[in-house]
Design a protein around this nucleic acid. Sequence first.
RNA 1: GCGCCUGUAGCUCAGGAGGAUAGAGCAGCGGUUUCCUAAACCGCGGGUCGCGGGUUCAAGUCCUGCCAGGCGCGCCA
Length: 557
Amino acid sequence: MDNSLKRLIEKYLHESCEELKKVEFSSKPFPPIFINRPKKKEWGDLSTNLPFSLSQEMGKSTSRIGRLLTSYLKEKTLFSQVEFVPPGFINFSISSPFFNEVLKKIVTQKEEFTRFSYGKGKRIQVEFVSANPTGPLHVGHGRAVAFGDSLAYILSKIGYEVEREYYVNDVGGQIERLSRSVWARLQQLEGEEISFPEDGYQGEYLIDIAKEARIKMGDALSEAGKTKPQMICLLGEFTVKEILRQIKTDLDQFGVRFDRWFFESSLDKEIPKVISFMKDRGHVYEKDGALWFKTSTFLPGVKDRVLRRRSGEYTYFASDIAYHAHKFGRGLDQVIDIWGADHIGYVPRMKAAVEALGYSKEALKIIIYQLVTLKRGEKRISASTREGKFIPLRKVLEEVGKDAARFFFLSRSCDSHLDFDLELAKKQTPENPVFYIQYAHARVCSILEKAKDKGIELKKLDEVRFDLLASSEERELMKELTLLPDEIKEAAESLEPHRLTTYLMGLATLFHQFYTRHRVISEDRELTSARLLLIKAVKIALKDALNLLGITAPQKM
RNA sequence: GCGCCUGUAGCUCAGGAGGAUAGAGCAGCGGUUUCCUAAACCGCGGGUCGCGGGUUCAAGUCCUGCCAGGCGCGCCA
C-alpha cells in the first residue's frame, strides 16, 4: 500500500520530464524532485521548484521549462489546476474528486491507509533507554523512552519488522559500587555506624531496597560461613533485580513494552570470541599488557582504545562491541541506537568497531538526543543518579500524565536542548497542546455518538454526496488528511517523530475551525452524511498519528 | 585546547535536501455561547532569524570566523 500523494505527483513529474527530454533533445539525468507545501494558500496545495533545478541542469530558460512541464501536467485529472509561477515554481491544486476518493479510502482502510511497505522483509532494531540498573529512571530518560518508542511505531508503520531492545549493564564497577552502597545501607539499618562509600550511590531509594533485602533475603545473608564479598555480591544481584523491576514498572506506566532485555552479563563468553575475530583481521594489538582496538584504521588520527585492561578485565567498550556483533549476528538489517548527548564521544569508535566486525557503518545508526535540563521555575536541578538528586520519571508521570509528558518530549527535535520545567509542565496542564489535539478527537467521537443516538444511519460510501463538502474548511481538512501518509513516511525517513506533533497541531486546528463554522448534524441529510464521513476520517487520522506517538486518543474528555 | 549540539517573537519551540511576503503554542489585550463538548473559535500587538564575512539568480537554511550556552574528550560506564 502506498498512499503517498507526493509520490504520485513525483511519478507524473518524471513522465513529464521524459516528454520534455524529447522536445529539448536532452539526455541529462533528472535532478531530484522535491514537492513541498507552499506557504500561502494562493500558491496551491503543493508545489515544486523543479523548473529551477531542471533549467540549471539543461541550460534552458526556467520559464520555458516550467511552461512545458505545466502543459503536460495539466492533462492529469489529479489536478484541478497546475500553474507555472515565476521565478520557477509549479503550483498544484488537487481536484476535489481526488480528495473524495481519499476520504473513502481512509474510512475503509482505517489505520492501514498510512501503511507502507518500504521496509518489507527487513528487520530493524531500536535500542533505547538502556539506563543502568543503579537507580530509577529520571526525567532525562523520559526523552529517550518517548523518542525510541515512537520511532519504533513509525518504522513499523512503513513496513519494517521492528524490535525494541533494552541493554542492561549488569556487570562492572558500577554494579560493585551499587552493591557496596546497599551493603552500607543495610549495615546502617542494623544500627552500625559505618562510613558510606565515597563513590557510592547516595539516593534514598537504596534504603528502601536495603529494607526489602533484609526482609526477603535475611536468611541468605545471615547464613554462616559466607564471606563479606559473597554477601555483597548476593545483595548486588538482589538490588539489580529490584531496580529493574522498578524500571519496568515505570516503563509500563509510560506505555512502553520492550521485546527484549539484553543483559551485558550474558556476553561473558562472547567477548573473547569477538576480540579474537577482530584480532585475526589485524584490528587488535597488545601494548603495555593491555589489548587495544586499532581505531585509527577506520578513523585516522583518532586514539586507539583499550578492550582488555592490564588487570585482565574487559572494558565496557569490549562488551559493547560484542553486543553489537550479537545484534548483527541475529540478522538485523539495521540497528538504531539512541544515546544521550553525554555519550557523543563514543559514537566514532562504536561505528569503527562495527566496520571492524565486517559490517557497513551504515548498518548502525546512532541517534544522539540532547540532554534534558531540569528546572523548577527559574531554578535548575542537577540530575545525578550517583548523588541521588534527581526527579524520578515516575513523579513526572504522576504530575503531568503520560500523554502530556510524551507530547512534551516529542514536540522538539532531538537535536535541541530540552528545558523541562516542572512548574510549567504542571501549570500547563489545562492549556497543553496535547489536550487540544485530544479534545479534537473527543469532539469527533461525541458528534458521532450524537448521530448514532439520533438514529442517523451512515450511507453506503458510493451513495454519499462528497461534492457537498465544498467549503474551504472542508477542503483544507481533506487536504490535511490526504497528506498524513507523506508525513509519516517523512518522519520515518528522517527518524524525526516530532514532525507528527506539528502535523497533529495543524490537523486539530483545522478541525476546530471547521467545527465552529459548520454543523455536522443538520436537517440536510445528504450534507450530514458527507460530513459525518469527513469527521470519521478526521478521527481515524488523529488516532493514527497519536498512536504513533504513544499518546492515547480519548473518546471523552 | 579539540570534537559534537544549540542560538528564530516576552517564554518554549517548529521551519522538511537553499526558494515565493518568517510560523505555532503559551503569556498579553479585545471579542464570540438559544445550536453536535467554550479544554473551542475570531481579531490585535509582537522578529537586526546570536554577530561578521562568503557561495548563489535566491540563505533562517550551505561554507567560514567570532560570541554565548550545553555535552564530551579514561585501562569509568
